[in-house]
Simulated assay, not measured.
Amino acid sequence: MPTPITPCLWFTENAEEAMEFYCSVFPNSRIVSIERYPDESLDPHYAGMSGKVINGSFDLDGNRFICLDGGPAFTFNEAISLTVECADQAEIDHYWSSLSAVPDSEQCGWLKDKYGISWQIVPANLGELMTGDAQVRALMGMKKIVIEQLVNAD
């Protein structure tokens, strides 16, 4: 039996809000559990964190994630992204319009959401669509991927 790998997302202070948002975007999603920081008098590391999420668990369409409110020490960057392989243009459009919040970060199917997480919103058959130089040029000129433009590129 393989060992599951579960991404952990470190939010500054809005992990619960983020879990609720992502569960509203992806079908078959739910918050599994939320554990909150204990009283801040127990340890100096808990200062200012009382009531925030120390461990949250949520499922996005069958994929488990965990998260926490960890303060501002670390932030998300493009070195890590989450990829959504979409069945068709309607799915691409849905996820793009739901998640994209930083227009300057959009390129070739990549976007950044309001929490700073980078996503790749791509057709599941992207490899099959990339049949030559014309498709590569078309993709490089896109922000959101438009399947029809890849198919008709020449």
Rank of each mutant, 00 (worst) to 15 (best):
residue 147 I to Y: 01
residue 89 Q to T: 03
residue 52 K to M: 15
residue 59 D to G: 03
residue 56 G to T: 08
residue 96 W to M: 06
residue 88 D to C: 07
residue 55 N to L: 14
residue 110 W to K: 08
residue 12 T to K: 12
residue 22 Y to K: 03
residue 132 G to I: 11
residue 145 I to L: 07
residue 134 A to M: 08
residue 75 T to F: 10
residue 126 L to M: 15
residue 12 T to L: 03
residue 129 L to Q: 03
residue 58 F to S: 03
residue 46 Y to N: 11
residue 14 N to G: 09
residue 62 G to C: 00
residue 87 A to D: 08
residue 120 Q to H: 12
residue 127 G to S: 13
residue 46 Y to M: 14
residue 74 F to G: 02
residue 44 P to K: 11
residue 137 R to P: 05
residue 43 D to E: 11
residue 83 T to W: 05
residue 43 D to L: 05
residue 66 I to H: 07
residue 90 A to N: 01
residue 143 K to C: 06
residue 103 P to L: 08
residue 42 L to Y: 13
residue 29 S to V: 04
residue 140 M to Y: 12
residue 139 L to H: 02
residue 115 Y to T: 07
residue 137 R to W: 01
residue 64 R to F: 11
residue 50 S to P: 02
residue 149 Q to T: 15
residue 57 S to F: 07
residue 33 S to Y: 10
residue 135 Q to K: 09
residue 60 L to N: 04
residue 15 A to N: 05
residue 132 G to S: 08
residue 99 L to I: 11
residue 85 E to V: 03
residue 24 S to C: 02
residue 125 N to A: 10
residue 65 F to Y: 14
residue 106 E to L: 01
residue 99 L to Q: 06
residue 104 D to C: 07
residue 17 E to M: 09
residue 45 H to P: 03
residue 83 T to K: 10
residue 33 S to T: 13
residue 110 W to L: 10
residue 28 N to F: 00
residue 73 A to H: 13
residue 133 D to P: 09
residue 101 A to H: 02
residue 21 F to H: 09
residue 88 D to A: 01
residue 47 A to S: 15
residue 95 Y to P: 00
residue 123 P to G: 05
residue 83 T to M: 15
residue 116 G to Y: 09
residue 100 S to H: 12
residue 116 G to F: 06
residue 95 Y to L: 00
residue 117 I to Q: 05
residue 71 G to Y: 05
residue 52 K to W: 09
residue 100 S to N: 13
residue 32 V to S: 10
residue 119 W to I: 09
residue 137 R to H: 11
residue 121 I to M: 04
residue 120 Q to G: 06
residue 92 I to Q: 00
residue 44 P to H: 10
residue 35 E to S: 14
residue 91 E to Q: 14
residue 52 K to L: 13
residue 126 L to A: 09
residue 76 F to V: 08
residue 87 A to F: 00
residue 86 C to R: 04
residue 34 I to K: 09
residue 140 M to D: 08
residue 32 V to H: 06
residue 106 E to A: 14
residue 31 I to W: 01
residue 114 K to V: 10
residue 125 N to E: 11
residue 43 D to R: 12
residue 92 I to C: 08
residue 113 D to Q: 06
residue 130 M to Y: 05
